[in-house]
Design a protein around this nucleic acid. Sequence first.
DNA 1: CGATTACTTGAATTCACTCAATGGCGGTGG
DNA 2: CCACCGCCATTGAGTGAATTCAAGTAATCG
Lengths: 259, 259
Amino acid sequence: MSDRHSLSALMILKLGSLFTLSDEETQALHDLPIQAIDLKSNRDIVRIGDSSLQCFLILEGYASSYKLTPDGQRQIMALHIPGDIPDLQSLYLKRMDCSIASLSPCTVGFFQVEELRRVCARHPRIAAAFWRDTLVDASILREWVVNVGRRDAYTRIAHLLCEFLVRLEAVGLVQGGTFDFPITQANLADATGISAVHMSRALKALRDNGLIQTRRRYLSVPDWQKLQEAGEFDPLYLHLEDNVAAGLLRTSQLETAAL
Amino acid sequence: MSDRHSLSALMILKLGSLFTLSDEETQALHDLPIQAIDLKSNRDIVRIGDSSLQCFLILEGYASSYKLTPDGQRQIMALHIPGDIPDLQSLYLKRMDCSIASLSPCTVGFFQVEELRRVCARHPRIAAAFWRDTLVDASILREWVVNVGRRDAYTRIAHLLCEFLVRLEAVGLVQGGTFDFPITQANLADATGISAVHMSRALKALRDNGLIQTRRRYLSVPDWQKLQEAGEFDPLYLHLEDNVAAGLLRTSQLETAAL
DNA sequence: CGATTACTTGAATTCACTCAATGGCGGTGG
DNA sequence: CCACCGCCATTGAGTGAATTCAAGTAATCG
């Protein structure tokens, strides 16, 4: 499983923005006690209405934030990948306003919100980095609204896949345009606000057009340019350009980052 | 126009959460130099891609965050009301990922991002309060995704109006279920991800069912309970219950809060 | 290997869309 | 003060993208 080191590397990768963290700051993150837990697929990790004293970092696998409507429909409004802290909002909001569930077998690291609050109080630059992280998440949500509100199914799915690929790439989880993709069509449908049946048809169209290839639990993008165009994808909203750590990673391909 | 006092009152109202701000903290917000500007309706205040050194607070009127798709469709992903700082993200993100425009004649107060950053550095509790504010905005975005992704037009509009009313109420801008509502149907359509024509039909249905009344530039909600049910509205996601200042305001109806 | 879950495909339906034409309101200027 | 123009809202008719329902196939897991 994941040791302290890779955990800290993931965090620093995600946070490293605006400035590089000092050794002391890195150490502070290192020293944050974490309890690693393994989870099966499709398990709620936190539920809407909860007011937990803990937060969790995804170490391995994917998760989603979702809500249910009264008639039982589901909408996923965020996908979470290794390095994400999906419920970081618990830092300053009393109750969860959505549920978070694993989309695949997951390893997550729980820590005390209070401890993180202390780290933030002692290290303003770490606080700023986490704050920035929540601002990027908000930006992703804004694009998600555009996706669901104004794009047709085909474009919408292409866009979602573009975003997912770029975010995975930033944490070193893409090899040659291929990445782990165990997410069911039903879940993808809930993420894009379409029906599962239509998701099947639209994915077929994407496959037929050579934009994606699905082999087992993996997804490949043979022509990145074409998929971007199909998805009307512009990565501006991911705010990667001003992320120091991610930039360093991309150029040097640090081994430590691959979980 | 708005003097320093009401400006500070608006800010404190919005920020007053988790704890009440001390006199010193209040003073720090007071001392933030602001330049008030009047704007006509439908004017861009900031544009996507901008990297401004300024932020603005809405003093009067409404604004929206929006993006355009390549084929010219528009999606509004946030409505902003007095007391909001729509581009607070500029604090830690280099470029704007959406445009922000006035939806009505507006008065906005510009201030230097750098100054706010200084205030946050000197007053960690103010920083926490602003951070919390961005977290609530993210929560509203999550609900917006659900609205646009999974609700039919009728329910979707009802929900949007519920949210708008509750947020306005929190800053004292609702009198007896009636509030200023100069927002065109085309803008509402862009906010809900439907067409302007269908917006007209759905609004008619809401009117015919007695859920809303539209007189001139004002909107009335005769039966709050019924509108909430029609919109599947649960205010949990607005995180009002733990907002000290708003709570105080609601119970004591401070005069200072009315702009 | 059997059972469950995930995916595919067809057919009919529906909600929302576009196009188009008309009506109302408010502001501006002759 | 009224006429006109432009913006906003409404309504009808036809279309279309995505839905539901249904049946059947493929994949995965214990």
